[in-house]
Design a protein around this nucleic acid. Structure first.
Lengths: 226, 226
DNA sequence: GGTAGTGTTTACCAATCGGTCAAATTCCCG
DNA sequence: CGGGAATTTGACCGATTGGTAAACACTACC
């Protein structure tokens, strides 16, 4: 291999990564997270990212040769940590407790990393043109694995029988809602919920919902369908 | 009022609406729904909309003077029908049945009008710059009203005590998920769920979730928290 | 302290963006 | 069929888009 990969960012063609490379790439990815998560891929511009990153456009393009390259690097980095909560889902643990803490962890991520959530939301919403492979490959495999865990719990009578895939979807959607639709949530709740208490309220509600549902528990246990 | 409103589309400044006006505006809004729902406001272009609508850009701009005008007309039209299911939420009905049919109606809309769902999702995700007033005004008022209904049901012991706002959020998020994150849902479910059976599965799962939760119902009714 | 990369900037490019204009065409009604 | 309004088009505009070229500045290392 005589010729270097000219498609890679110029800074990556050199052997050793310099201090400046680390710093600038960090700046760029941070700015790109801001811009891509707010405008989606098509709506984001390199100028905008360069502006937020505090550098000139050609300087930015010295580190990432194209808009796609920035987006890809960002997706790759974020996807890793994003699926961690699901990976921690433990087959040996107590089912109710596992579901409870999964919900809680996902809510914490919605609260602490809303931009990351919106980055994916934008991408998937717009047809996932850049992450199709990740969805059909690693993501599907991980979900398949965890779905089997849930199914085993249901078979063992530890939780109610239910479709494990739709259970996972419902946990994703309810928790990520507080990041992706934040402005709507805050608009509906109004000024009095200005703080971050809505995340605690959401945690309480969702734990109740997923474990007990809305039906009033009757003393004689007649709540089951007749 | 001598001078006409020059900010309005030229076609609207005339008194009688022509057949052609009706038809072309319909074409444009249909195409705009396609394009805006897939790319968001910033990511959409007039050329693209004109192309999908099968007309030239100047011709399109004869009916809607700006990109914002198309978007606004689209939002106004769609927002009306979008909130219908929530409006139908009936205080006098049976709580469990009302929640059940609300979920079902929302799922049907996710299945039959995914573009409309994605239009709003894109808009809210990107900070709702064009519909802030609608969220804080009419939407909030409608939700406030229905939240009071739910609260009354809970007080009367007809359903479990819970935060009505987060209940509504969770119904929105779980149902719209099947429209907004459709590609992800299909990627995870795989080829075997290629048809539209996933909506039926989702309906079954969500009804069970919202009414009974995941905890196994015990004969002695000990499922309630101690 | 020179020099070979490494990093940065200015100037620029073609393509696309939202939008305008005047001329050409079509439609509708008497 | 005639004529005025409604509609459509091609040519065009300045701004912005993603990206490039080359000169310039810096920095690390001998």
């Amino acid at each position: 291999m005589d010729d270097v990969d000219m498609a890679a960012p110029r800074a990556a063609r050199t052997l050793r990564r310099t201090r400046i490379q680390e710093e600038k790439e960090e700046q760029i990815l941070g700015a790109a997270l801001d811009v891509f998560s707010q405008n989606g891929f098509r709506g984001a511009t390199i100028d905008q990212i360069a502006d937020v990153a505090g550098m000139s456009k050609p300087n930015l393009l010295y580190y990432f040769r194209t808009k796609e390259a920035i987006h890809r690097a960002l997706i790759d980095r974020v996807l890793q940590t994003w699926l961690d909560p699901l990976r921690e889902f433990n087959a040996e643990g107590d089912p109710e407790q596992e579901i409870r803490s999964y919900i809680r962890r996902k809510l914490e991520m919605a609260r602490d990393f809303p931009r990351e959530s919106r980055l994916f939301a934008n991408e998937v919403l717009q047809g996932a043109p850049h992450i199709e492979d990740e969805l059909k490959g690693p993501l599907k495999e991980l979900v398949d694995e965890k779905a089997e865990v849930i199914r085993a719990w249901a078979r063992a009578g530890k939780i109610a029988k239910c479709d494990p895939y739709h259970l996972i979807f419902s946990i994703w959607s309810t928790t990520q809602h507080y990041a992706d639709f934040d402005v709507q949530v805050r608009a509906v709740l109004g000024q009095d919920h200005a703080g971050e208490g809505r995340f605690d309220d959401a945690a309480r509600f969702l734990e109740q919902l997923f474990l007990n549902g809305l039906t009033v528990k009757r003393k004689d246990g007649a709540a089951g369908k007749g």
